[in-house]
Design a protein around this nucleic acid. Structure first.
Lengths: 193, 193
DNA sequence: CGCGGGTTTGATGATGCTCAAGCCCGGTGG
DNA sequence: CCACCGGGCTTGAGCATCATCAAACCCGCG
């Protein structure tokens, strides 16, 4: 249940066996079926979720009912509405499962307790936050700089697993284009080779 | 020289007089003339800069030579290439002054020393990073969700000072549209009232 | 006074959206 | 085991939005 998590943490900070045992106590394991919600807009996001297995997404819904993908998370990723989690204000995003999933949930009190008791985890989360900022900056630049086709190509290049694993209409939404446009772009790319 | 800075920090964590005096020792004051660089692409970003006075921007330049605005920073804001600063890798962005500016520079060793010696500052920066993530998420969602006009209206509503103070072609770049398009949008909006 | 950067305006064209229909395929119930 | 449903992907036609290119204008500054 904790395999992926420990592997992931040990890539950033190395844990002793004792620390690993202690770490386990902070989490609440949870399974989620495909299409099930982890979080709905306007609820407070009570947990950060680490994905041990499966695939989740976070997204918001605009006035016209269109969904806009914010993030995908599979094995080895965290997902939450960061703002809602830390501020305990209502969430702006929805989170649900694209594939059946096994999660490790971490509540805010447990999060704070964990970073106090195990300083390595403070460092781990700081690194995580930094990487998060950097990733969002890149995506932002990409979204204001490139055409639909270029955005798709860059995403494929930088994140082949995502393009393999995620349904096409969700990738379209992630890129800020319609499913039709993405379909045509892919047809075009195949054609040109 | 430190007026804006202390006001800003005290809004998030309250400092004693002694702490304020201690804080001053970590910074390197610097003045920057309009159009002068604080950081150029491919150099390592050695400082985070707090803006006491004036106006800066960070941006990158694509293959075709077009600039894309990442951030504006005036009195009370920090600016840096976060990734480059923390990793000491070459920067992906340029930073320069739009208006003459007075800055407080903080190097990485000083940053680390400061957060160690004054735990309140650790908290201050964590809050800063969180807010940064949240702001970037919002801008991202906005950029993949709304039309050019809607993006401009939302920016005006959420950030009237920005629209007042920043040259129009830079706002266009920030929104990911051309200056011509922004000019026409504004004309249209005036017309409609 | 003249230069130059920024803004405006116009004409044209490309890009991507919308709406509508058909297709493909995996899952479900008879 | 087959028929049928439904969701996702594809395709097409027409249209809106926005970019591009070019020219004119405006204004502050040297």
């Amino acid at each position: 249940m904790f395999d992926v998590f420990f592997t992931h943490v040990n890539e950033k900070v190395s844990l002793t066996i004792a620390e690993q045992e202690q770490l386990k106590t902070f989490f609440l394991p949870k399974k989620l079926r495909k299409k099930q919600y982890l979080l709905q807009e306007d609820d407070v996001c009570r947990y950060m979720a680490f994905v041990e297995k499966g695939l989740l997404r976070s997204y918001n819904v605009d006035d016209r009912g269109n969904e806009h993908m914010l993030q995908f998370a599979w094995e080895g990723w965290w997902i939450a509405d960061t703002y809602s989690f830390l501020s305990e204000e209502p969430a702006a995003y929805n989170i649900d499962a694209i594939e059946d999933a096994e999660l490790l949930l971490l509540s805010l009190p447990q999060f704070e307790e964990m970073t106090l008791q195990i300083p390595k985890m403070e460092r781990y989360f700081r690194i995580l936050f930094q990487n998060n900022i950097i990733a969002k900056e890149r995506r932002l630049i990409s979204s204001i700089t490139y055409s639909a086709e270029e955005k798709y190509l860059r995403l494929s290049a930088s994140n082949p697993e995502l393009v393999q694993r995620i349904p096409q209409h969700l990738i379209a939404s992630y890129l800020g284009i319609t499913p039709e446009t993405l379909s045509r772009i892919r047809k075009n790319l195949l054609h040109r080779q």
